[in-house]
Design a protein around this nucleic acid. Structure first.
Length: 260
DNA sequence: ATGTCGATACTTTATCGA
């Protein structure tokens, strides 16, 4: 089974590109982030016509997450628990099963957190802690579980071109990295690190300043695997070519192959 | 040194978020 995650940066601004990219993934499950539309504006039929089951949790203008699955959904849970006043659509969880094996997948769009010293960074860390608490609950289910998405965290210095350029950025702060490590320390495994671990392997290149032609990217899209999922991990692929297409997202998909 | 993109609205350019 191949599980992919991709920050599409508006599903409606690049639907033809998105259909091409998603088709090329040859995935069974695709987590999407930054839909930038409400649920009724998601192009559901375009995906259903291609055989996808579609679950969305969107909002107007900002954020929004979805899960596409070739297998039917047994369960769909929008919203991250822990703060009923949080109106930002950044979390969607679903369960599918095949051959008696259940797989739980979450599509995650972690807050960016910039600029530092504002409530945006505080919100990022608070949201991260809510995610950790949910991840701890899910770990104790002892299921195959994949927490996939745009974490807005650069885990290592080697996950960016120039660490000095990111020094003052929320994605590179010690607190952000510590929060990501705390999630992994529950027992989750960063699929890329387990299967590859290479340096300067990016999933995002800014639209500005020629970041893509100069390969000045960052690795911020991650798949965190529960122990049961980690035992099944075969390989991880970063779908880098997507960044060179017409009207690309600033992120590319990353996928993990599990022996299921 | 510079360089972008997408959504929105008291819109046709400014603003915000990334």
């Amino acid at each position: 089974m191949r599980i992919a995650t991709w920050n599409v940066n508006s599903i409606n601004a690049r639907l033809p590109t998105a259909l091409t990219v998603i088709g090329g993934l040859e995935a069974d499950i695709v987590c999407l982030q930054e839909l930038k539309c409400e649920d009724h504006k998601f192009p559901r039929e375009a995906f259903e016509d291609l055989g996808w089951n579609v679950a969305t949790h969107g909002q107007k203008t900002y954020n929004g997450v979805a899960i596409l699955s070739k297998l039917p959904f047994d369960e769909v849970l929008p919203r991250l628990p822990g703060d009923d006043t949080d109106e930002q659509a950044r979390y969607l969880e679903a369960v599918v099963s095949t051959g008696g094996t259940a797989v739980r997948v979450a599509s995650i769009y972690l807050p960016n957190g910039n600029p530092l010293g504002t409530e945006k960074f505080t919100y990022k860390l608070a949201w991260f802690e809510r995610l950790r608490l949910r991840a701890r609950e899910l770990r104790d289910y002892e299921e195959l579980c994949v927490l996939a998405g745009d974490y807005n965290v650069i885990p290592r210095d080697e996950d960016c071109y120039d660490p000095a350029a990111w020094k003052g950025d929320a994605l590179f702060q010690p607190e952000s990295r510590a929060a990501y490590r705390a999630l992994l320390n529950l027992g989750y495994t960063d699929a890329f690190m387990a299967a590859d671990g290479g340096i300067h392997r990016y999933t995002f290149w800014d639209y500005q300043a020629g970041a893509w032609p100069k390969d000045h990217g960052i690795r911020i899209d991650h798949l965190a695997l529960s122990p049961q999922a980690t035992d099944r991990l075969k390989s991880v692929k970063i779908h880098r070519a997507a960044r060179g297409l017409e009207k690309p997202s600033d992120h590319v998909p990353i996928s993990a192959d599990l022996a299921i």
